[in-house]
Design a protein around this nucleic acid. Structure first.
Lengths: 115, 115
DNA sequence: GTTATGCATTACCTTTAGGAAAGTGACTAT
DNA sequence: ATAGTCACTTTCCTAAAGGTAATGCATAAC
């Protein structure tokens, strides 16, 4: 193990930890992925496409994503009230992560099936 | 929200969930990243570079990564015993994920600092 | 006025993740 | 004999994640 990469690493490791904190957990990637595919979505839509999520958890995840400026939340003037969520510009930077994760997952599934 | 993408999505969502299950948690990405940078590493090296990890957790993470064929474990013929870990071929497919996560993390850090 | 819709929130509970501290066992050096 | 190294393992504990079920609230339809 060499020693000359330590400076480079410190920053990248911090970036990595930040990213994991922001996007970690069971549902965030899934939510972002759905928003990426469908564009603007309502609470109900997200609940249906993120199969298995409870309203409580979905609500919490959306709040966290909003706090980190990855999505915007808009209350619509409808009856009953509907609320729309969509990705921010900044969230488009998470697209390569999603793509890479899906690629990796697909390859892994293939590999497992070979046996 | 359209309806015509559902078939495409089912597979990609499963792949996404697989990837999250394999790579999720606080430490796996960090460990993979270190192994990618340094090549072969011993338990002690990984413990030092993954700052803050406890031996128990490191041990567990390594076992899981080995089970999923992302790393190999080799007991060396030294005294005292040392054990070497390195990425498998298959693990190179996780490289784009790491790169994307780090990119995202760096951009996010920059954005946060602007305020 | 009872029921339904949409978006939550609340209370409660279980499971999992993960940390701290100590110990194990095989070996070596002093 | 004592102390140290390495790679764990064990025990004990706390905090966080996440699930279920019920409730709140504004509105509207029947």
């Amino acid at each position: 193990m060499e020693n000359n990469k330590n400076n480079v690493n410190k920053e990248t490791v911090l970036a990595l930890k930040d990213a994991i904190e922001l996007l970690g957990g069971k549902w965030k990637f899934c939510i972002l992925h759905n928003l990426q595919n469908y564009g603007t979505m309502r609470f109900k839509d997200l609940k249906e496409t993120s199969q298995g999520i409870s309203p409580k958890v979905l609500s919490k995840e959306l709040q966290e994503l909003e706090e980190n400026q990855l999505i915007t939340r808009t209350v619509n003037n409808t009856k009953p009230v509907t609320v729309s969520y969509k990705l921010t510009k900044h969230a488009t930077e998470s697209q390569p992560v999603l793509k890479a994760l899906i690629d990796f997952g697909l390859k892994h599934r293939k590999k497992i099936k070979e046996k």
